[in-house]
Design a protein around this nucleic acid. Structure first.
Length: 576
RNA sequence: GCGCCAGUAGCUCAGCGGAGAGAGCGUUGGUCUACGAAACCAAAGGCCGCAGGUUCGAAUCCUGCCUGGCGCACCA
């Protein structure tokens, strides 16, 4: 199946070249022409402003350039007409070709809009990557949904995709977790318990303690925090895995940061940076002369007591005013070093594309890591970071703030219990990453036409139910003649159905999975419902041959809805 | 102080160099003896934060400013 914008762009270039050979256009290097879907229907199905872009290069009037391109345009079965309006060239799809696409979609079935452009290429999507200190919260869910949807879209263009979850089960936070569980465990046993000052206060800590009591009784009463940490980690990972599973997110690899210490790659990375002359030892970092200290900064520097730390010359690598620490004065690396080792590890595993989805608060980290990976000579451009803004939950205008540590949060499980998995997927997806997201619980909860989730799914339901009724009445689409689909409503629905491949391509090119959610709602479903209302298939007024043809149309629509919903990780219900 | 992101209909947000600026919700008024009305049709609603600039053409690119969010640790 061809993707028209791509094919048209090629034909436009061909036409320009032919015109040049014929002397209708002067010689110049042909730029990549842009092809778009015009907003207004009377401007055709696709349009290109290329003649206006070429006006300067060709030193001709846009109208004449457009005409020359049209005069030399190659044949294509999908083109019904070509029109020049000023400098614009408008293309209209051929009705005959559109009709044939219905049979083409039916023949493709569930593999409709499956391409192999990137066959043999490997991609990795890293997302969520929350340390196992508590249940998954809504902020992480956004990245997870974006990542999983992107993975599905990448598979649709032929990538072999792995989902990866990066975590750290060492360090201060995990120790606090162990101490918190230990305190709750002793508390439940009626023993003296000192809860750590910055401990985790969530209810789930009690749950873990209770489970431990159920399994081991009081035999851990005097055990150290490590035992509790390990038990808690295992249970929390199970919780995380299970909650993400409820919204269709599964991971192929859980990558432990510790392994980068065990195989020595953290220190190898440091050595490599040192060899490049990018590292030095000093009590304080070097900084630009015009660098202005933040009020609390001297205090923070002084806290190390003047001991020597290891610094990376970040000022050399990118536009910052102060170098950054790689190894603290106590000999422990900061997060930057293992993170860099981790990304090098990804590239060494041979991924052609490694996508990393992070909250915007990690932007500096992402830039630092990218700079270091590039400085070491690795193909850093294979790493693509997608940053997303935060999520706030709102209900009746009230916003709900979240903090894992304080134990005030809405967990993914609570959210799924409340609004259902499909609504979680849709709303988390349907916003551009850089825009701050307000998740309206009231709206997501509604099982009515106010909710886009149902609007989209109901289209699939309507198709499914039509197929059931057809079967009951013994009407089959077998032998249906698609050339009977001649009304504007029918043809416009087909126009939408064949747009899915283009949407997938855009999502992948721009790494913007939210586009498919918008398209599914505002384009696909929005076109489907009025058509369904107007174009009856099984009504007594509809002659049998037309009914067969229309059944084909709606069967094709059902395939496209199912495929679209699947790409978004949502269910395609047979009935509401 | 510096950096990144955002400011588009009453609300939540698309569009990010092309042709009278879009959607959902909300508001107002219509539509089922039909394959499910969780639907459809119609109306009202906008100096696209402000001011300059680039361009044949700017909501979209550049500069400055205003407002909001997030960063600017020997935390991750």
């Amino acid at each position: 199946m061809i993707r028209i914008p791509r094919d048209l762009a090629g034909k436009i270039k061909q036409a320009i070249q032919r015109a040049q050979e014929a002397g209708a256009l002067p010689e110049f290097d042909i730029p990549e022409p842009s092809v778009a879907r015009p907003r207004q229907a009377d401007h055709g199905d696709y349009a290109t402003p290329v003649a206006m872009q070429l006006a300067r290069l060709a030193r001709m009037k846009p109208d004449d350039i457009a005409q020359a391109i049209i005069d030399h345009f190659p044949e294509a079965d999908y083109i019904g007409s070509i029109e020049r309006v000023g400098g614009f060239i408008n293309f209209r799809l051929a009705d005959r070709w559109l009709q044939q696409q219905v049979d083409a979609i039916l023949a493709a079935g569930d593999s409709y809009a499956q391409f192999d452009d990137f066959a043999g290429k490997r991609a990795q999507v890293e997302c969520v990557s929350a340390n196992p200190t508590g249940p998954i919260t809504v902020g992480r869910v956004r990245g997870g949904v974006m990542g999983d949807t992107l993975a599905r879209l990448l598979r649709a263009v032929g990538y072999d995709v792995e989902m990866e979850y990066y975590f750290n089960n060492a360090g201060r936070q995990m120790r606090l977790l162990g101490e918190s569980v230990r305190a709750r465990y002793r508390e439940r046993l009626g023993l003296e318990a000192e809860f750590p000052a910055d401990g985790y206060r969530g209810e789930y800590i009690y749950d873990i303690a209770d489970e431990l009591i159920a399994e081991r009784g009081d035999e851990l009463a005097n055990a150290g925090w490590e035992v509790f940490k390990e038990a808690a980690e295992a249970r929390i990972f199970e919780m995380i895995r299970a909650s993400l599973g409820r919204i269709g997110i599964t991971f192929d690899v859980f990558f432990n940061e510790m392994s980068l210490y065990e195989d020595g790659s953290v220190w190898r990375t440091l050595d490599a940076l040192r060899e490049k002359g990018l590292v030095y030892e000093a009590p304080t970092p070097e900084r630009d002369e015009d660098y202005e200290e933040r009020p609390d900064e001297e205090e923070l520097d002084a806290a190390s007591g003047g001991a020597t730390a290891t610094w990376i010359r970040m000022r050399k690598l990118r536009n910052v005013k102060k170098d950054k620490a790689l190894v603290k004065s106590d000999g422990e690396p900061t997060y930057r070093l293992p993170d860099t080792a981790y990304h090098i590890n990804k590239l060494e595993r041979g991924f052609d594309l490694a996508i990393n989805i992070l909250g915007t608060d990690h932007i500096e980290e992402a830039k630092d890591v990218h700079a270091m990976v590039a400085a070491l000579g690795y193909p850093a451009d294979r790493i693509r970071v997608i940053l997303h803004q935060f999520v706030t939950l709102s209900e009746g205008g009230e916003t709900v703030r979240m903090s894992t540590r304080r134990g005030e949060f809405v967990t993914l499980d609570e959210l799924v219990d409340d609004v259902g998995p499909d609504a979680v997927r849709y709303f988390m997806l349907a916003r551009s990453p850089e825009s701050h997201m307000d998740f309206d619980l009231e709206l997501a909860r509604k099982q009515s036409n106010e909710n886009p989730v149902y609007y989209i799914q109901n289209a699939h339901v309507r198709c499914a139910s039509m197929m059931r009724v057809a079967a009951e009445r013994g009407v089959s689409m077998e032998g249906g003649d698609v050339s009977l689909l001649t009304s504007p409503a029918e043809l416009n629905l087909i126009r939408k159905l064949i747009e899915l491949p283009e949407i997938i391509e855009t999502c992948v090119q721009e790494l913007q999975p939210h586009r498919i959610a918008f398209w599914a709602h505002e384009e696909l479903a929005r076109t489907f419902h009025p058509t369904y209302d107007e174009v009856r298939a099984l009504h007594s007024d509809v002659p049998e041959d037309l009914a067969k043809a229309r059944l084909k149309l709606y069967a094709a629509a059902q395939i496209v809805f199912r495929r679209t919903l699947d790409l978004m990780g949502m269910s395609a219900p047979e009935q509401m």
